[in-house]
């Protein structure tokens, strides 16, 4: 467990959180990022990694996932601590004015908090069966970490988007058997990937709906799927079940931290300060007079928030930073 005290803990590792991490480095703050998903990039990676973005200043067009890669590279120059797979559930301010944050896994300590959680914490859309939960971390997967785990197994993949199709194609050469089960007749994935899928040895089952999962105390052993046109039910035996039903997000616990909200946005002033001293916010999650929700303006919120945090921690510091051209060299020297 990391009991270290950080200057700022950024909640949300999307584009704004990443830029804030970079800017925190520029202002020589000790920075930690906490992200709910197993990867950084927020909506850009979870919702539209392959889409082009046209309104990043200085970039006529950039693919969402490429922007994430650049932001990660930029932020990592200052080696912030990155915590993945953790969702901040509670925030407590101690008597000495510091914050304790409890996640689903551990406790974190920080002098200030910067919330750049966008539309809230993402999590995979889970199977709608009560008893499914007990198989998570066993043979029910919402994320793939280690491809080797699936070698020589019988694998079922649920879903019809890019992730489902891509995973099917990656597993087909190493698995014993791969089946992909989709509720529709058309896959939502890239045409080229779908063509590859149709030419592969992947067993394509559509339009089928998942009807039931069957397992013992340890593992799912088979599933029953129903053809949506004929209503015929089929049982499929499996070693591993992978579910790719996309992501859902919600503000969830953030609403319980005593922050002032307008609808689903945190109210901040022009310094990005919230109503709780020491907690700042930036990006899509904030609202103030004239707020525009864009990545471009989120970056601006982030720089303002970090500068405000710098002066909050060190009242002698300047709100207005030096130009990066001179500052960067000095810090890195």
């Amino acid at each position: 467990m990391d009991k270290e005290m950080y200057d700022v803990t950024i909640i949300g590792g999307g584009p704004i959180g990443l830029f804030a991490a970079f800017y925190g480095g520029m202002r020589q703050l000790k920075v930690k990022i906490i992200e709910s998903l197993p990867h950084l990039g927020g909506q850009l990676n979870a919702l539209y990694p392959e889409k082009y973005i046209y309104d990043i200043a200085g970039f006529p067009q950039t693919k969402a996932k490429d922007l994430v890669d650049s932001l990660v590279n930029q932020a990592m120059q200052f080696e912030p601590t990155v915590v993945l797979n953790q969702t901040v559930e509670g925030v407590v301010k101690t008597d000495d004015g510091y914050f304790q944050m409890v996640t689903n896994k551990e406790m974190h300590y920080s002098k200030t908090i910067l919330i750049s959680a966008g539309i809230g914490a993402f999590e995979p859309r889970r199977l709608n069966f009560e008893h499914a939960k007990q198989y998570e971390g066993k043979n029910l997967h919402y994320f793939i970490n280690d491809l080797n785990h699936f070698a020589d197994k019988d694998i079922c993949i649920l879903g019809g988007g890019d992730s489902a199709v891509d995973w099917a194609l990656m597993m087909e050469p190493i698995a014993n058997k791969v089946s992909i089960i989709h509720r529709r007749n058309n896959f939502r994935a890239h045409e080229a990937s779908v063509r590859k899928l149709e030419d592969s040895d992947v067993n394509i089952l559509k339009p089928y709906n998942l009807k039931e999962i069957h397992g013992d105390d340890e593992y799912i052993q088979s599933i029953t799927i129903q053809n949506l046109e004929t209503n015929e039910c089929v049982s499929v035996e499996l070693d591993e079940l992978i579910t790719n039903y996309g992501f859902v997000s919600s503000l969830g616990p953030i609403k319980e931290w005593g922050l002032e909200f307008h609808k689903n946005s945190i109210i901040v002033d022009s310094t990005m300060r919230t109503n709780v001293e020491g907690i700042y916010a930036a990006g899509d999650i904030v609202t103030f007079k004239g707020k525009v929700k864009l990545i471009a303006t989120g970056f601006s919120d982030a720089a303002t928030a970090i500068s405000s945090i710098k002066t909050y921690i060190d009242p002698k510091a300047r709100q207005q930073p030096q130009h990066s051209t001179s500052l960067f060299e000095k810090i890195k020297a």
Binding site: I119, V248, D284
Partner: peptide, 25 residues
Amino acid sequence: EVCPVDAIHPGDDMYFIDPDVCIDC
């Protein structure tokens, strides 16, 4: 199925999007 914020609800004869929940994705 694709709405990341579950903003789409079934009405009697069609679906509706909750404008206060929609994030314009």
